[in-house]
């Protein structure tokens, strides 16, 4: 039986699930849209991973499970995670494994963008966009949809531009009105798209990187790294090449799996097994009326029975997911 490690990254836009082996090689990876339903996404992802490994011809045993992303608490309860880690650390762990000498990580996801500065493979500084979503994937998605361009070809279109227009990148609202103005003035689409890529990069460097010293090698990770237009704008602006790792969309999940591998060296895994993909999991929220904080408490129900509860400030409603543990099937995948 080959020991493997599961990594789950529940982001605002996508949910990524990977399996890595002991030496950190990617065996399987799934990239799903969260679509506002992280539980369904996790279940679907696990089911796909199980189906994928069925064809591999060898028996795998999940020895550890790590979760990350903005939905990591929920994912941790559902999966029975050995480690629940923030996405900045996970991305850095995966990046160092991909490119051992990496000095800078640019990560742009669905709702937020981050910069991480490393020195000798250790994170020494980081920053995250705190107020504005102008430089993130959701905004690009929206603009692509408005222009009627599939997001997959958005970047390619930017590369065709010869005279990019200037677009305000500081604020999503300003950027959109600028784009509409240029479009009505008759500028070709590729020049507008390229202008938007330049604006997003300018905004990122001014508001997220904020004067931090960006030294090569630079890795560009997260969903937006698929966009060749943005990558080109980064390279033009920085004056050196920017590398997009092969599994750039899955880096957070890979980092979580690698951390889980380290975590379970001294203890058995808490992973609940792939049968969680088959059970009926729902959530229900209620507002606690006991004090004016009016906390929104969330309950996780399995087949109609409450198995976990969280979200209260005082902690009185908290119930950890221990009741879920009878699901454990040893994490074994049949060959």
């Amino acid at each position: 039986m080959t020991p493997v490690y599961l990594g789950v990254d529940v982001g605002s836009v996508s949910t990524d699930i990977v399996l890595v082996d002991e030496s950190g090689n990617l065996l399987a990876g799934e990239y799903l849209m969260t679509m506002g339903n992280p539980i369904a996404a996790i279940q679907e992802g696990l089911a796909r991973i199980r189906r994928f490994t069925e064809g591999m011809g060898r028996k795998l045993h999940v020895c550890g499970c790590g979760v990350t992303g903005s939905g990591r608490q929920l994912a941790g309860i559902i999966c029975g995670a050995d480690i629940v880690k923030n996405e900045i650390t996970c991305h850095a762990v995966a990046a160092v494994r991909d490119t051992p000498g990496v000095n800078t990580i640019i990560e742009i996801g669905g709702q937020d963008s981050k910069i991480t500065i490393l020195s000798n493979s250790v994170v020494v500084d980081f920053a995250m966009n705190s107020v504005c979503a102008a430089g993130t994937g959701s905004f690009l998605d929206r603009q692509a949809a408005r222009l009627g361009i599939p997001i997959e070809t958005f970047g390619q279109l930017a590369l065709k531009s010869k005279h990019p227009v200037r677009i305000a990148g500081r604020c999503a609202v300003f950027a959109e009105s600028d784009m509409i103005h240029k479009q009505q003035a008759g500028h070709p689409l590729e020049d507008i798209v390229k202008g938007l890529c330049d604006a997003l990069v300018r905004n990122y460097l001014a508001n997220v990187a904020k004067g931090k010293k960006i030294r090569p090698p630079v890795l560009f990770q997260g969903g937006v790294a698929s966009n060749v237009g943005i990558r080109r704008s980064f390279e033009e602006n920085l004056g050196f090449p920017v590398t997009v790792p092969r599994h750039h969309k899955l880096m957070g999940a890979i980092g979580a799996a690698l951390l889980a591998c380290k975590e379970v060296q001294s203890k058995p895994t808490a992973f609940r097994g792939f049968t969680i993909a088959d059970c009926n999991l729902t959530t229900r929220g209620f507002e606690c009326p006991d004090c004016p904080n009016r906390c929104e408490v969330i309950q996780l129900l399995q087949d109609g029975k409450t198995v976990a509860r969280w979200g209260s400030r005082c902690g009185k409603w908290d119930l950890t997911g221990e009741a879920l543990s009878h699901l454990v099937d040893g994490g074994t995948l049949q060959a």
Partner: peptide, 8 residues
């Protein structure tokens, strides 16, 4: 951010 800061 706090978790990442403490990790760092």
């Amino acid at each position: 951010r706090l978790e990442a800061f403490v990790d760092m």
